[in-house]
Design a protein around this nucleic acid. Structure first.
Lengths: 331, 331
DNA sequence: AGACCCGATGTAATCGGTTACAGTCAGTGT
DNA sequence: ACACTGACTGTAACCGATTACATCGGGTCT
């Protein structure tokens, strides 16, 4: 249907090889011929077919990104980081997203194979076997937020970030610090909880299971957790939500209960999503360099693309404590 | 490098055609042979090459998205809308972003050609010729936020939205309403300004050029505009920023000048970005269904993919006034 | 003058699949 | 016994590019 190189060649009275040479400046061509071909291509509105080019050159100049779901600031941010790095390398981005279910992951992987030179995969629970079975061994893969044997990975130091926050709260004098944790199966949620516990121990505060409230990373669950929080006796003076969404939900819950933040309760989150600085009081949180994760993952993938023998690296990015108003440190 | 179908065929002692038939269930194959091929493919970790399949079937099941830049809530939101719709149709998304410069746009377009079945293009100023010259005539294209002859488009009704807001402010009793407008060349910015002017006229208020402050859609320019705003005499009682980013900048500026919002000045924005509901006071704004734009654009593209003879449609989505606290309507 | 080099161009193989067409073979109806 | 049918499988063309190799002609060097 679309115009092909063959048609251009015929119209210009030359062979396809010559046309190709002109278009890619890949060989000597007489100036007159060159002009004629260019003119013909323009007239016929010829645009080379990317797929065909990919096939012959067996390179796509594309990095595939597989994400579990596209909703939430988190994934937008990842995409931004990835796209920036990809574009800087003059590559392209092929995006695929999958929701729950093992079949979905496989489907997502397979649609990417052959169409990308490397892959950035982010999925709450990826197993090495699934990757192995559905990807050619030669395809560089970097896993985001988790480690998988044999592949590169970029992760954040959840435990250290959570520990820093808990240490900060303890340093402000809080002795009863409640935690709204994330969904149990989630690796990030577990690491944050562990970091929190460890910091408590270091501060000489006995971790108390009663102070660990259940949450699932949604704003609604943060709001719901305030009920449990208020039922605690004596009431903790600080509430640490394992992510910002839950912290914002909790903020609403606390406010509705007539409590002042940070006056009555110090509140902290985790992630530093964009809205964190805009809520009132501005949320003290742990900054997670999400876009940088994406960028690093891309760098790692492209490194492997260029040098297939390079050893996949496992990177752990540090987080940063962001003290704003909700914890009362500056009020 | 990767395992090909040919190798699987050899190992299984059959022809490539049979392998293809098994993998796609596209023809009768003996049960015993079938199992043998499946086993062999699994053992060799064969995964079909997407590019090659695309080439022969001349269909990619992919929708390309061309965006001007990936920063800002706006584009994230577009991507979300697009991805959701694309996934629902069991298609894939190929993302390309371009920054300024005509060469960039052309580059972006060309990387997509042949690799997608349809295209959603969003760029502040696209010209019909550029699209025509760099895309095969047969490729369905839908333009986002602007109209281009011969292509489908999805746009929002900027003028009506701005008019609604200005009408709302006038209805609250404001007689001097300042506008921080967007960059002059931007079509959205112009439409919003025009809607504003028209609503003023309808309300019997003479549009006053002195009340139109320059901005460029950035938060910084909104902040900067407050200086000009404060210099107006008599000071207007309402400030309408042509987008939320500028409104938030202005909010900061007004607060620093010791003015209360909405007590001293009613403030309104446009876009309803996610943070709009979280700033204090919550921002009154015009909701723009960004993700829906993306979804509609995809629907339009896929419609054209399925029926190449369908007439491209020009869709204009309505906006919705969102009254929160910053305009004083509810205080 | 003959060997040689180089620029300009064409021929054809190739990438990894899909698929139209053709062939084989066993079973069936007459 | 013969033509026919249909399930099963293979051969080879094709998708639209890239590119190794071959060809050809004129200019240069000795």
């Amino acid at each position: 249907m679309a115009v092909t190189m063959r048609e251009v060649a015929q119209q210009a009275g030359v062979s396809v090889a010559t046309v190709s040479r002109v278009l890619n400046a890949s060989g000597p061509v007489g100036e007159e011929t060159r002009q004629r071909i260019l003119e013909t291509a323009g007239r016929l509105r010829y645009v080379p077919n990317g797929t065909a080019r990919n096939l012959t050159t067996s390179t796509t100049e594309t990095v595939g990104v597989l994400l579990p779901d596209l909703y939430g600031d988190f994934y937008s941010e990842v995409i931004r980081g990835v796209e920036g790095a990809v574009r800087a390398a003059r590559y392209h981005t092929l995006l695929a997203s999958v929701h729950d279910g093992p079949g979905e992951l496989v489907r997502g992987l397979r649609t990417l194979v052959g169409r990308v030179d490397g892959l950035v995969v982010m999925s709450p629970d990826i197993e090495a076997d699934v990757l192995r079975a559905n990807l050619p061994a030669s395809l560089p893969v970097v896993v985001l937020g988790g480690e998988v044997a044999g592949h590169g990975s970029v992760d954040i130091d959840d435990a250290a970030g959570a520990a820093a926050m808990t240490r900060h709260l303890a340093g402000l004098g809080h002795r009863r610090i409640a935690l709204v944790s994330g969904p149990a199966p989630n690796a990030d949620a577990r690491a944050r909880r562990d970091g929190h516990r460890q910091a408590l121990a270091e501060a000489g505060l006995a971790p108390d299971p009663a102070l660990e409230l259940a949450g699932d990373f949604t704003e609604a669950s943060g709001y719901a957790a305030t009920a449990a929080f208020l039922a605690l006796s004596p009431r903790p003076t600080a509430l640490f939500a394992a992510n910002d969404a839950m912290a914002i939900g909790a903020l609403r819950g606390l406010r509705e209960a007539g409590l002042d933040v940070p006056g009555d309760v110090a509140l902290a989150g985790f992630d530093d999503v964009p809205v964190a600085r805009f809520v009132t009081p501005a949320l003290t949180t742990v900054h997670v360099p999400i876009d940088e994760m994406g960028a690093r993952a891309v760098a790692s993938v492209l490194g492997a693309v260029r040098d297939p023998d390079s050893v996949p690296s496992a990177l752990t990015l540090p987080t940063r404590l962001v003290v704003r108003e909700s914890c009362g440190a500056r009020s």
